[in-house]
Write a protein that binds this DNA or RNA. Structure first.
Lengths: 232, 232
DNA sequence: CGGTATATTGAGTGTCTTCAATCTCAGTGG
DNA sequence: CCACTGAGATTGAAGACACTCAATATACCG
């Protein structure tokens, strides 16, 4: 298992993602300087406000990235899964981490030191451009999120988040969302109280739009859910 | 007036902002390929969803950048003033504009075609890095905004926005905010109904935290306003 | 001096939050 | 095997907060 991730060349991350613009030589360069670590659910890679010394590339598992409000409430900003990188913002801007990065499904993560990234950026304009485009894409996502959270009701946002989760992480053979989140985590994405999420989920269930078995959620009527998330 | 903006070298934009990493030669290169236009309040530089062919650099005046909800409601994402650039996201990612860019104070704006930007990015790694850092900074701002809008009350957000406006655009001799926004625009930043902004402003006034003369707003008790925006 | 856009105020309502109690379930130790 | 425990999930009730709609006032523009 860990064997697979010792070579960037063979890693799926290098095919998609920003690394696709790198030559084999560049990938070897990263290989020689990266380290690989295994993490368990609940582990924190870095905490908001801390300095970080490189970027993290997810080989397997899932991370949640969140900001913490002054009252201690988490706001989940994004997730990272296979092929995604995180921490690059802080590295590129040489600023403290602006989110906390926590493992929610056991993960194998590669760490690439800052100076390696910088030297690649300087050397390879296409890589720099890829990084820029990644940032721009995330910025656009963030802006859409701002609009939604400002204009939509909790119910609409919850519907949207469920669709996003299925889209991003997929579903199992029986149609249940692959990713497993607590109600509290769901509420920290949607931006609402845990109890509200629970009540609205049970509403959606009684409307036959979703189905639930224990903690697991299945989208039954995707069309209707889309309508709910986007009533215009 | 327009004379001043014919030469990037002399333009204040080139001192701060992302252009500071460019040589005189590079600035001349931009000069030879840019165009300058004057705009009136209400003019739209580009609209969300449209293709744009270059980036816009604000020499004077103010722009608001907003997304439009499906029900037609604006969500203001950011402003751009002297020295700021806009449209670069869409150019770098080669995607349609993700916001509408509208003049709210008469403006002089330089237009720099995409291919010029790309060739500078390829040629000058420091310029690329500056652009990246700009994007990262905006991304961080956006994430903070998400957290705030999700977790704070309208009153807290309004207080925060007022502080931001004073910070970003300054105040006149009598202490009034320089930037002039309608109540509707204020509500489109805060993410609330116009009436709510009006009521909360008048609350703040009766608490002697702010003062109003017609449309103009003055922050009287900044300390208190900070406390309101950040009650922990 | 109209006429239009913006601002303000009031009333009524609905959504969401908060707080507190209860329930479920998985893991633990006896 | 079962009671115990703690974390997470659920439910109920009460009330705060913010929104909508409608009416009115004021300011601004030509």
């Amino acid at each position: 298992m860990v064997e697979d991730i010792h070579l960037c060349k063979g890693c799926a991350c290098s095919k998609s993602s920003i690394f696709s613009s790198l030559s084999n030589e560049d990938l070897d360069y990263i290989d020689d300087n990266k380290s690989v670590n295994l993490y368990k659910k609940g582990d924190v890679l870095y905490r908001e406000g801390n300095r970080i010394l490189g970027i993290y590339c997810v080989n397997s598992g899932i991370l949640k990235l969140y900001k913490t409000g002054l009252d201690g409430k988490e706001q989940i900003i994004a997730f990272a899964q296979k092929g995604d990188i995180t921490g690059y913002r802080s590295v590129l801007s040489n600023e403290p981490a602006c989110t906390t990065s926590e493992v929610i499904e056991d993960a194998a993560i590669c760490f690439i030191p800052s100076n390696i990234i910088f030297s690649l950026v300087k050397k390879n304009a296409d890589f720099a451009l890829s990084l820029m485009q990644l940032t721009c894409k995330e910025l656009n996502q963030a802006n859409i999120f701002i609009k939604d959270i400002a204009q939509k009701t909790v119910r609409e946002r919850l519907a949207e988040v469920l669709l996003m989760l299925e889209d991003t992480f997929g579903k199992d053979a029986e149609g249940y969302l692959t990713i497993s989140l607590t109600r509290a985590e769901l509420s920290n994405i949607v931006g609402t109280a845990t109890e509200s999420v629970i009540r609205l989920l049970s509403d959606l269930k009684s409307e036959n739009v979703i189905n639930m078995t224990g903690k697991k959620i299945k989208i039954v009527n995707k069309t209707e859910l889309k309508k709910i998330s986007n009533p215009f």
